[in-house]
Design a protein around this nucleic acid. Structure first.
Length: 731
DNA sequence: TCCATTGACGTTTTT
DNA sequence: CGTCAATGGA
């Protein structure tokens, strides 16, 4: 058979990966080295050359977008239906397994998925119910605790908390949370993975069935897998499965949410026969950009090792701009983009990347001022909008009225006279008798324990839900949603909002009905016995809508470096290259390798650029209301000087800029910077402290013996010291 | 029940 | 500084 079309467009390393003999393969795929292409060609190779049945292949990714792209490209390449192939996200595949085996894992047939927001609300509810003070016991922390434990495969009974009151309390909340979820037939994201793992553990015959069938497992972005995902995978692979993983330890940027880069090393240890293949040829960036990125990432310890190269051009030097402050930084970046567009390039070719979401604001302001179209990624997604979630909550009640999370959300929306007092009475009743809210409402009405006004309001709600269930039972999905919106009179809840806001909400609700009309029940959900409604609700939770914009939007792209992973742009700006911001202060202070993750994030950011890369930092930045000085990011120093072209000399730090609009501030700063003061150091001067080591002078305050100096230490971060006692030496 | 004021808080985010 | 959630008075 002619297989040239599978191999023609591949380089040697890619071809080696695609044609690797059965067994375990680790592909270390650098940024822009064609990893998706390798995955797609590998699938095609298995089917067309190795004659593996499409039913025997499982390909797993992290995002729906990546899964969709892989499926699409595989279909184009093979010219066959990709229906029988299992391609999906970890969560999507776990969901599918749980649907098919809900009995074995103890879930009701119509179980529903709780998104992070619902989860947080439920946890907050429980913390209050348990009589805990939320200032000492923040619900976010509990959420983090529960999810982290689930990601590690732990149930409350596994958690040791000898003499540890915090762990003991959170474990208790975890336990209570699980009870609520159980009663409401609810499953959160981490639970999907954990249950799928427990399915393997507790149902050997089910595991055996899938082991026999799925002989080829392909994993994308392997460096992002967490403990439970890897454990799940290993069990599925068993002794005979072939595991083909693609990843890049240098692009692991999700350690803070449980991803384990160590899995890459573990994989090599767990499968000693693994063939390791490096994809180092880059098809995206200029030589200069790659050299800079290589030099930067070389500062990390314990890498698998990899060096990107290109057959293409060297390209321009990396621009470095030292702005006086964040306003000036934004001004400069937008100016560059304007020039780029005037030079005939598209706005969508340019991306502004930053560390924290709050940084987007200024750039937006300046883009708006210059009338340049832009788009900020990572905003709220369609199925996360509150009005959409309100409508979905009513739908969830049609499916299962014992869904406490849904009842809490809409019982008084729009207001129907069910106040906080009534609701908390009902909660108490539910808690004491171990019932769902819906059941507790039924009991309360039957026993007549509610005040008459409350009873009639609650009775009306019960009637509303029951009537909807009856009236809408045989409607199409779209009509069900329209019916729920009409019957509940949901839009009344927004009537007092400003008209613009209200109109968007109504528009989103119409769009929700449209989405439902277009929705086609996937075959696998039908096979699992799901109704259209159940399937749609799951779909809404698992694919909350697009995160990343469409290519046809010719807009300047604004996003965090995290959300830029996997994307590329001809012109990339990385703003806010300051110690304390990037790398973030929290990571600098952290002892456990966070700084290296931060460096990887920088590596990811830099390798997004195809043609031009521009780094910038502000000497003074307003943060949390006050101005702070910081030194340029240590990452800048880690890039070879000869690759960098400074647009404005860095020495400028000795002349702090003060915005004209803040004349008071100017006076104050100007006075403190009179050069004939008896200060032994200049601003920006490198100094040494016997305890904190080397640092840079950032600011002075006060006079004579009371003079204090702010020094940003390389290791210890920024500190205010009394000059008379600090014993600083010029470095 | 609603709205306005106050207060706490401040890294990254997909499923 | 800006945001969001909680609180308390009308």
């Amino acid at each position: 058979m002619d297989v040239s079309h599978l191999l023609d467009e591949l380089n040697d390393a890619q071809r080696e990966a695609v044609t690797a003999p059965s067994g375990h393969v680790l592909v270390l795929a650098g940024a822009g080295s064609g990893k998706t292409r390798v995955l797609v060609h590998r699938i095609a190779w298995l089917i067309q050359v190795e004659h593996v049945s499409p039913l025997g292949i499982l390909a797993v990714t992290f995002t729906n977008k990546a899964a969709g792209e892989m499926r699409h490209r595989t279909g184009e390449m093979l010219q066959i239906s990709t229906r029988p192939l299992w391609i999906g996200t970890f969560h999507g595949i776990a969901h599918r397994l749980l649907r098919m085996h809900h009995r074995e894992v103890g879930l009701p047939e119509g179980f529903q998925i709780l998104d992070s927001e619902d989860q947080l609300r439920l946890i907050r509810r429980i913390i209050r119910d348990e009589g805990l003070d939320e200032t000492h016991w923040p619900s976010r922390q509990a959420q983090w605790f529960i999810n982290a434990r689930k990601d590690e495969g732990q149930r409350p009974k596994h958690i040791e908390h000898n003499d540890h009151p915090v762990t003991a309390t959170w474990t208790h909340v975890y336990q209570r949370y699980q009870e609520y979820c159980h009663r409401g037939g609810l499953v959160d994201f981490a639970e999907l993975l954990l249950r799928a793992h427990e399915l393997w553990l507790e149902q050997p015959e089910v595991l055996d069935h899938y082991r026999k069938r799925l002989q080829h497992l392909l994993i994308d972005e392997f460096q992002d897998t967490n403990t439970i995902q890897y454990a799940w995978l290993r069990m599925l692979a068993g002794k005979s499965g072939n595991v083909f993983v693609v990843g890049d330890d240098d692009q692991s940027i999700y350690g803070w949410r449980g991803a384990k880069v160590e899995n890459v090393q573990l994989f090599v240890r767990d499968y000693p026969d693994v063939a390791t293949i490096r994809l180092e040829q880059n098809y995206r960036s200029t030589g200069t950009i790659l050299n800079a990125a290589n030099a930067l990432i070389a500062h990390n310890q314990g890498r698998m090792g990899k060096k990107l190269w290109t057959a293409g051009e060297t390209g321009k030097n990396i621009h470095l701009y030292a702005a006086y402050n964040e306003q000036e930084e934004a001004r400069y970046v937008i100016e560059c983009i304007k020039r780029w567009i005037d030079g005939g390039r598209k706005p969508s070719d340019a991306a502004i990347l930053y560390r924290t979401t709050a940084q987007s604001r200024l750039f937006e302001e300046y883009l708006l001022r210059e009338s340049i179209p832009y788009r900020v990624y990572g905003g709220q997604r369609f199925f996360e909008r509150s009005e959409v979630k309100d409508a979905l909550a009513y739908l969830r009640l049609l499916n299962n009225p014992n869904d406490d999370a849904a009842i809490e959300r809409v019982i008084n929306k729009p207001t129907r006279g069910i106040g906080e007092k009534t609701i908390s009475d009902l909660r108490l009743q539910a808690r004491e008798s171990g019932l769902s809210l819906w059941q507790a409402i039924g009991e309360s009405l039957k026993q007549g324990v509610l005040a008459s006004r409350a009873a009639s309001a609650v009775g009306a709600f019960v009637k509303l839900v029951s009537d909807m269930q009856e009236r809408l039972a045989d409607f199409t999905l779209g009509n069900q949603i329209q019916g729920v919106i009409d019957d509940s009179n949901l839009v009344q809840a927004y009537e007092k909002e400003p008209s613009e806001r209200r109109e968007t909400r109504e528009e989103n609700l119409r769009e929700l009905v449209n989405a439902a009309d277009r929705f086609i029940l996937p075959g696998e959900d039908a096979d699992a016995g799901l109704t259209e409604l159940q399937s749609f609700l799951s779909h809404a939770a698992l694919e909350a809508g697009e995160t990343q914009g469409e290519a046809w939007d010719d807009c300047v792209q604004l996003m965090t470096m995290h959300s830029a992973k996997g994307l590329e742009f001809p012109l990339v700006f990385i703003a806010g290259m300051e110690d304390g911001l990037f790398p973030h202060q929290r990571s600098i202070e952290d002892a456990g390798g966070r700084l290296e993750e931060e460096r990887r994030l920088c590596y990811v950011g830099m390798t997004r650029a195809r043609e031009e890369l521009c780094l910038s930092y502000a000497e003074v930045r307003r943060m949390h209301g006050s101005e702070s000085f910081s030194r340029p990011s240590r990452f800048i120093e880690e890039i070879p000087e000869e690759l960098i072209e400074e647009v404005r000399p860095r020495a400028a730090i000795q002349r702090p800029y003060v915005p004209a609009s803040r004349s008071q501030a100017r006076d104050r700063v100007a006075r403190t910077h009179v050069p004939n003061q008896a200060w032994p150091f200049k601003l920006g001067q490198p100094v040494v402290h016997k305890k904190f080591g080397e640092g840079t002078v950032m600011a002075f305050e006060g006079q004579g013996d009371h003079t204090r100096v702010q020094v940003n230490f390389d290791q210890a971060g920024a500190k205010w010291l009394v000059l008379a006692y600090a014993g600083l030496q010029a470095a």
